[in-house]
């Protein structure tokens, strides 16, 4: 997964997740506080620059991660551009471009873009286990955090199993037609469902063998100069919000 690769190899990998989470949150607040599409675009540019220049994420990789979301954003915005009129001159329903709404649509799209860059800043600079630690500090329920930890630790195992099964099925022309694809995918998922059952039983036995008594506990990684990083992130975040509020 490109996001995970970047999260583990970027320049800010060792920076406190609290600082990165705080900066990302400030970015989101600034995006919502931006009074015009131009200001929201400026916020998006600042966040993208912080991710690419600051954390050292290669621009091409950034674009590859952002591309599906950008396409989705374009489709979402396009759906806002048109308005439906039931009482048209022909009597039926008619789609027409809502020209008067264009400034509002531009605002929504630019805000969404800025929020996306804030999300990408967090996901490309912070590994998911660090985000789970951050959520633990935010006092999220233990059960939810346990689900997250188990989900994260097994999703790569299951992804590998899926990849290997698809390769084997494809080698036997399992995806040659719609009917075969449906059948192959169905047997793959049935097999995976059983694996879910079996792997969870094995994990339970392994936990019991280690005297597990309920909640899952893990050592947290320590981050040097955490308070300094948090102060810098808070300062930069405050400047970003101030810019969003001050600019027209």
């Amino acid at each position: 997964m490109l996001t995970e690769q970047s999260a583990y190899t970027n320049r800010w990998r060792k920076v406190s997740p609290v600082a990165k989470g705080f900066f990302s949150l400030c970015g989101t607040i600034a995006a919502f506080a931006a009074g015009s599409p131009r200001t929201a675009l400026l916020i998006a540019l600042i966040l993208a620059a912080a991710t690419i220049r600051g954390a050292g994420i290669p621009p091409l990789r950034y674009l590859r991660v952002a591309a599906p979301a950008l396409l989705f954003l374009a489709a979402s915005c396009l759906s806002l551009v048109f308005s439906l009129d039931f009482g048209g001159t022909t009597g039926g329903a008619a789609l027409y471009p809502a020209v008067a709404e264009f400034p509002r649509i531009a605002q929504v799209c630019c805000r969404s873009l800025a929020c996306l860059t804030a999300l990408l800043f967090l996901s490309l600079t912070t590994p998911l286990p660090d985000i789970i630690t951050l959520l633990r500090h935010c006092k999220l329920p233990d059960t939810l955090l346990d689900l997250m930890v188990l989900c994260y630790r097994t999703l790569f195992v299951l992804s590998e199993a899926v990849h290997e099964t698809i390769t084997a099925q494809s080698a036997r022309l399992g995806y040659a037609s719609f009917r075969l694809s449906l059948r192959s995918l169905g047997s793959l998922l049935a097999n995976l469902t059983v694996q879910v059952w079996q792997r969870s039983q094995a994990l339970h036995l392994a936990a019991l063998a280690r005297n597990n008594d309920g909640a899952l506990r893990f050592l947290e990684s320590s981050h040097a100069n955490a308070s300094k990083s948090i102060s810098i992130a808070a300062g930069a975040g405050a400047v970003m919000i101030a810019l969003a509020v001050a600019l027209p």
Partner: peptide, 30 residues
């Protein structure tokens, strides 16, 4: 939580089920 108290092995099952749902959403459906 109630399920976990009655059947502790469900903790692992639901965690793996979450991973299963995530993997499912990454599959291409014809």
């Amino acid at each position: 939580n109630k399920r976990f108290r009655e059947q502790p092995e469900q903790r692992m099952l639901l965690g793996v089920a979450a991973a299963f749902t995530f993997v499912l959403s990454a599959l291409k459906l014809p």
